[in-house]
Amino acid sequence: MTENKPSNTIATEHTELEGLIPWYVNGTLSTEESAAVKQHIAVCEQCQSEALRCQSLVGQLPAAQEIWKPSAAHFTGILANVDKLEAATAKPDTSRTKTTLGLFQRICACLSQTPSPVRWTLAFETLAFAALALFLVLPNSPIPKTGGVFETLSNAESSTTKGKSIRLVFSEDMTTRELFDLLKQAKAQIRQGPSEVGSYTIEVASKDEAQSLSVLRANPKVRLAQAVE
């Protein structure tokens, strides 16, 4: 056993160094490795032959049968593929920005995918909740009681009353159009009304009072036409 040990060590060393010969030939071994291989080759005929074969392989290495060269056309093609790549990678970016959208936009996006009846129901419910919330949040001021005051735009007191006033009451089927036509015929203008009971106060020129009253009373839909002092 003791005699075999050195020969085994030598055999192992030979195998290891033989495996390094290709890189000994291409000059990329470390200084220590290179020195070890060089020393071994000097005493090992097999490895010396191996080194020579590797050396001749370097000289005999066939070149590629065709030479590949870069070209402007090929690079243009690469750039086109870069553009496609950029466009493709931009899509995930868009989806990422979606996650940063505001709550409102996300709700809109969600609603757009909801069936129409459900969407409207949700909208009404939201409005109802909003109204309820407003009611609860707003200060508890009492709703002013109108006390039965019925006001119209014509309730405002006219600052100037130059003519005569006539109180008018129409039948219920009097239309607005018929009212305006009648007032035109009677040369009258509304001063107040309609009141709570449906009466109007109109004004006519003093000189036309009799004539106006006559026109008004002639209309079948006029229930009352009376001069007011």
Partner: peptide
């Protein structure tokens, strides 16, 4: 076969 003539250059 690959030639083995010559001398190891390294």
């Amino acid at each position: 076969s690959l030639p083995e003539q010559g001398k190891v250059m390294i």
